[in-house]
């Protein structure tokens, strides 16, 4: 169709009805809490959108989905979602989610939290929950620093990158999160960036539908702190970096996914295996061992 033939009066009309003013994701967002606290060009809004898209795609009943966050910029995610949402303590989102997931086996529980929250202070919970294969989806937003508290170094800060507590550059080895997740027992492991919105949403959908401990790392721009302190430009410049340096390599060996400062970022789906969840294994095992004495946990 010739562009000039398009009926302008329709396509460019300023929406004015109540219905068209509605945010397309309003059913999933606590609009009354907006504006949110996130900086302009932060990637967290994108992650939140991808989460909602993934959830919609999964066709899970949103009433049966609970979201838990810890503390941090990412930790605010739960509070913006119009779902049963829990803003727990720093590092404890995953064990809090264990309470929900085992407390009501009908729930699908998702954790959205930061790299510091999940991997530093919450690192022990993370590996043990993966080991047990508790049925939950953990989305770790990795912005390479502790954003909420002003850009300190964390367990994912790349070597040589600057942070407020690594003023001369970071000399600690960072974690390789997909490797950590896989070796701890996760059944689904993927990494995307905030630029890969469609693939990220698809991964979130897959992870939500996957029984067991699923893990997605999302590389996310923090323009105010990480980018500024490392003179990397704006959030948009970080997105350009993802565009230029992200390499999709599904099924890559997770031991080779280390992220070096401003170097290539391997993304993709790395692990997707079948393994009975904690609750399933417990049920099967105890009913075999205890026979008719076993009374399965039914939830409240």
């Amino acid at each position: 169709m010739n562009v000039t033939e398009q009926p302008f009066s329709q396509s460019l009309e300023i929406p004015s009805t109540e219905e068209s003013l509605k945010h397309p994701m309003e059913d999933y967002l606590r609009i009354e809490r907006f504006p949110h606290i996130w900086c302009a060009t932060c990637g967290l809004g994108t992650v939140l959108t991808a989460f909602i898209t993934g959830l919609q795609k999964s066709e899970l009943d949103p009433d049966k989905v609970s979201v838990v966050s810890g503390i941090g910029c990412t930790g605010r995610s739960a509070g913006y979602l119009r779902l049963d949402s829990f803003h727990s303590t720093h590092g404890r989102a995953v064990p809090f989610a264990t309470g929900l997931a085992l407390g009501n086996p009908e729930l699908k529980v998702a954790v959205i939290s930061g790299d510091g929250d999940l991997i530093a202070i919450g690192g022990n919970h993370f590996i043990h929950t993966a080991r047990r294969n508790i049925d939950m989806t953990v989305i770790c937003v990795n912005n390479f620093n502790y954003a909420m508290t002003g850009g300190q170094a964390g367990p994912t800060t790349p070597l040589t990158a600057n942070a407020s507590t690594a003023p001369y550059g970071c000399y600690e080895y960072p974690f390789n999160l997909p490797y950590l997740a896989e070796s701890s027992g996760a059944v689904y492991v993927a990494r995307w960036t905030a630029l890969h919105i469609r693939r990220l949403a698809n991964a979130i959908c897959e992870a939500l539908l996957k029984p067991g401990f699923s893990f997605i790392e999302v590389i996310c721009p923090c323009s105010t702190l990480y980018a500024r302190r490392n003179r990397l430009g704006s959030g948009l410049d970080l997105m350009k970096h993802y565009h230029d340096q992200a390499i999709i390599r599904h099924g890559a060996d997770t031991s080779e996914l280390q992220i070096d400062f401003q170097k290539e970022i391997i993304v993709g789906k790395f692990v997707d295996i079948e393994k009975p969840t904690f609750a399933r294994k417990r049920d099967d095992y105890l009913s075999e061992r205890l026979g008719k004495d076993y009374v399965p946990y039914k939830g409240p």
């Binding site: 303590t89 064990p95 929900l100 022990n124 939830g299």
Partner: peptide
Amino acid sequence: EDELASMAAVVGATWTGV
């Protein structure tokens, strides 16, 4: 894995009604 997790799980579980 520890008591931090234990107490967090108890709070989470309680919100399911148990």
